[in-house]
Amino acid sequence: MKCKKMVDVGRRQFLRGGALAAAGAAVSTVAGAPAQATPANAQVDYPSDKLANIADLAVNEPMDIEYPDPDSPGVLIKLGQPVEGGVGPDGDIVAYSVLCPHKGYYMGYNSEDRTLNCPGHFSRFDVEAGGQQVWGHATQNLPQFVLRVDGNGDIFAEGATDLIFGRPSNVL
């Protein structure tokens, strides 16, 4: 398990362009993968980031998160009733990317009907139905973060179901 803080630090340095060695390493990791004799893992290696503790969450009050790095904003939501893919003792905690998978606009949460809505081109996604696009232009449903809850109630993100807008790999 990686420390969230370390991931953040590395990521920020990378974005500033100050860490040439880190950038080079990232390039060779991703670009080199198909040239290897065996394919890479079915999915990229994700960090395991602690997002919150269950005690931090109130029903239908979304918490801003960043996963798998600070440039990928998301929300963590406790829905108050079990949903498919939900975690926690009530099976009701879910997390999604909030970059619209159409053109990458930052979406807003409508707590009344529990949808994420894109101000760019009016697409909307149902957080109670696995991020299914209710209506819109995206050609995929919303990337949902794979969550794990430990014995202390800490909630960790450890993967994503779909490609996040604006990147060729979920882990850059």
């Binding site: 990458g104 606009y105 760019g120 995206a138 050609t139 604006g166 990147r167 060729p168 850059l172």
Partner: peptide
């Protein structure tokens, strides 16, 4: 530079593309 998160309206290849 694809190592950077692209901004809204930026170039992106979705899996369906």
């Amino acid at each position: 530079d694809l190592s950077e998160q692209q901004s809204a309206d930026g170039t992106w290849v979705a899996p369906s593309m």
